[in-house]
Computed example of a mutant assay.
Amino acid sequence: MNRSCAVLFAFAAIRVLSAVADHSFVDPSRVIQLSWRPRAFLYKGFLSYEECEHLVALAKDKLEKSMVADNESGESMMSEVRTSSGMFLEKRQDETIARIEQRISTWTFLPEENGEAMQVLHYEHGEKYEPHFDYFHDKINQQLGGHRVATVLMYLSDVRKGGETGKLSQLKDDSWSDCAKNGYAVKPQKGDALLFFSLHPNATTDPKSLHGGCPVIEGEKWSATKWIHVASFESQEVNGSGTACEDANVLCPKWAAVGECTKNHLYMVGSKDSLGFCRKSCNVCTL
Rank of each mutant, 00 (worst) to 15 (best):
L121D: 02
S24P: 00
N182Y: 02
V7D: 13
K263R: 14
F88A: 08
E127A: 06
S66Y: 02
V56K: 13
C214D: 06
W255M: 15
K187S: 09
D273S: 07
R92N: 13
C285Y: 01
A231S: 13
I228R: 01
V216C: 03
N182T: 08
W222C: 06
S85W: 10
V16F: 11
E116D: 14
E112R: 14
F25S: 15
T151Y: 02
N141L: 09
G115E: 04
L63M: 15
G74P: 11
S281G: 07
K190C: 07
N249A: 10
G86K: 06
V238R: 14
G270A: 06
S73P: 06
S24I: 13
L17W: 10
A40T: 09
K280Q: 14
D158Y: 05
K65N: 08
R99N: 14
W255L: 14
G86I: 00
E218T: 06
K254D: 08
C179N: 05
V152Q: 08
S175T: 15
L58C: 15
G259R: 09
E101I: 13
Q93W: 05
W222D: 06
G270K: 06
Y184S: 10
E101C: 12
E220R: 11
C179S: 05
E164R: 08
T106V: 11
F11S: 12
F196M: 04
R103F: 12
Q189R: 15
E112S: 14
L153I: 02
F277T: 04
E101L: 13
A10Y: 05
H147F: 07
L168Y: 08
S157W: 11
